[in-house]
Structure formats: C-alpha cells, structure tokens
Amino acid sequence: MKFALFTGCVAKGATRELMLATIKSAEALGIDFIEMKSAACCGAGVISEKNPVLTDAINARTFALAEEQGLDIITICSTCQGNLKKSECHLDEDVEYKDKINHVLKDGGHQYEGGKIKIKHFSNILATPEGKALLKEKIKRPLTGLKTAGFYGCYVLRPSELSEYEDPDNPKELEELFEILGATPVYYPSRIKCCGFPIIMMNKDASHAMAGNALIEAVEGGADCVVTGCPLCHLSLDSYQPEIESMQKKHYSIPILHLPQLVALALGFSPEEIGMDKHIVSTVGLDKILAQHA
C-alpha cells in the first residue's frame, strides 16, 4: 500500500508526536507514505470564512500534486480530511468552476483533473478488510485490558455525504479498530460531537464545556483513555485539560492518544518512541494497565 501523506499543519507543529507515531506505525505495517511536502494547508474551514474560492483553489493544487504522484491522499487529521473532501465536492460538481481554478493553477504547472485519486483518513484505510488483516498480522502487543473511548472529530462525519464512514451518525470504525488492537471500546454520546477547538479563542467557556462533556462521559463510561483521529481534538482535550478541570471543578486526568499512537503501541513501540511523553496529561497510567494484562 502506497499513499501520498497529507500531514496537515498541526502534525508538523504542536502535535509532532502524531507525525512521529504515523511514520512509525506505517513503517511497521509496511505501508508506504510519501509526504506531500509542497501541499499547502487545507484551509481548516477558516480560509473559506474569508475566501471560499481560494480554499478550493489551494486544495485543487493539493489534489493535482497527488494526481501527479499517482497516489491516493491519506490524511491524519479529521479537519484536513473534511475540508479536502468539501473542496473536492465543489470542484467535481461544477466543471466551469474547476476550469476557472485550473486556469490559475496552470501558471504553477499544476492541473486538477478529478476522479483520479481518493482522499481518505488513516483510520479509513485501517478499517478496510485489508487494513484490518494487516493489523491483525502485525500486532506484537495486544492492548488487552485497555478501555478506549474513540473521539472521531466532526469533519470526518459531517456532512455525511462526504464522509468515508459507513454510518456517520453512528460510526463504528474506530471502535472496531480498537477491538482488533485488543482494546475494549467505550461508547458514549459525545464521541461524534465537537471538541470545541474551533471556538477556543472566541468562546473559551463553551469550548471547554464541550470538551469537558466528552471527557466526563468517557470517564464515566470507564475509559482509560480517549483516542482521537484529529490533532485539533487532541489539543482541545489534552493541552487544555487543566483549564477544563478547573472550569468544571473536576479532576479527570484522562490521557488522550492520537489514533496512530494507539496503533503503534499495539505494534510494539514504546510510549517514548511515539512521543507520548510530549502530552500534557500523563499517559504513564496506561503502561501500568497494559503491564497488568501482559
């Protein structure tokens, strides 16, 4: 399996441990990721607040790059995934619009043809029958005893017609992966809700309350950790957890993992190798749980 890896900005910045774990787990699984080093930011749904056409143009350039590589795009961020899909939809449903954008891309030596490549989140390829078989084959340390609460990230689910998940209102893909890795999934209502990150600066209290509700539900559901497919959710749930705790006057200290970290753990990597020591909320407790069941 070979893909063009669209890293997104955050995995190269504030959550570099996500990038680390992605590369490690891909290597161990024998999946070839070719990093798209000249791909620009997906716009994160923010550039389109100012200039929707520009967003689609920048993303059309990214798609053109993948077409040039002849590879499907893999994202490791729910926000990137959703925004790329949205642009793809805008471009593919309106030929005139696509032509207009291609006209501008031409001067940079790129053209987006459309229909040639797919855009998928890392979790989507892991959740295919081939992906699952591959995981089963390569697992070195089943995560037995670990209770994991999935947190999907809005952009991979909604709008549902652009989602790669089978039933975006009640997705099961992350939980199925947890089971394959040997962990026990925890189901809770907030797993498909918003983490609050997009308004963390505009309405801090509401943002933290959203994240806090997810954390409470996960903890009450007995989860040992929350596993997210989106680094922005990770920032909201992990980096801001102390603020959330003080706002809600509660103490959770629940570790938040990136999905590739969970995969890498099962593939035998040590927590340090995949940057778990970089988290704000300590993940040390997870080692203990895993050790107990080892």
Partner: peptide, 30 residues
C-alpha cells in the same frame, strides 16, 4: 505548559516546499 513539554511549533517557522506558488494563488484570488 506546552513549552515545558516542547509541544510547540518549531521556533523557525518552516514554509512548505514551493510556498511561492501558493502565495501566487492567494494573490490571484485577491
């Protein structure tokens, strides 16, 4: 908190390869 964990973006903000082309597209679209 993030600084202490070295959980911060690189001190020198590194552009993507061919950032010039992206800038050009930004300019084309106003």
């Amino acid at each position: 908190r993030m600084l202490l964990k070295m959980k911060i973006p690189p001190i020198i903000h590194k552009p993507i390869d061919d950032a010039k082309d992206v800038r050009r597209i930004f300019e084309e679209f106003g």
